[in-house]
């Protein structure tokens, strides 16, 4: 407890040029990864997991109309969840948890995209990236 923050800090610069480059590098690398995500192809399936256990797999190609999946609150930490999937993506449309993060995330469809609801220990992951422009059935 011998050194005050003030004394440790007042002589320091706010930032050095080297720092700027390091921070810029982090931001650039992350932005590149983000771009990679953003350009990912649409996925073919979505996996709904509860507490790490597979709950249901949704196959976008075989959905003729919108499908609603209701999650049993007993399996999801007491949170009531409604998941809506159609051929254009999957989203959580209703959640009774306080923060509603999963609902605000919106619809996901690209391979690798994730919706997470921590209170319910729920995750929805889109996978099965295919280069397919369309599916015939």
């Amino acid at each position: 407890m011998s050194k005050f923050t003030y004394e440790l800090a007042r002589e320091r610069k706010f930032i050095t040029k080297k720092n700027i480059f390091i921070f810029a590098a982090i931001v650039l690398v992350c932005a590149a990864i983000w771009l990679f995500y953003a350009l990912a192809p649409n996925g073919g399936t979505a996996e709904i997991k509860l507490d790490g256990e597979l709950y249901e797999t949704v196959d976008f190609a075989s959905l003729e109309a919108a499908k609603e999946i209701f999650i049993d609150p007993n399996l999801a930490g007491g949170v009531e969840l409604t998941i809506t999937a159609d051929s254009t993506g999957i989203s959580v449309t209703r959640a009774t948890c306080p923060d509603k993060t999963c609902v605000e995330t919106g619809k996901i469809v690209r391979a690798g995209e994730v919706i997470i609801c921590l209170p319910a220990k729920l995750s929805i992951t889109v996978s099965g990236a295919s280069d397919a422009d369309a599916i015939t059935y």
Binding site: C30, Y37, G52, V114, I116, L122, T125
Partner: peptide, 10 residues
């Protein structure tokens, strides 16, 4: 969630 939470890493 034991899921791909690291999607959010960047």
């Amino acid at each position: 969630t034991r899921a791909a939470a690291f999607y959010y890493a960047p």
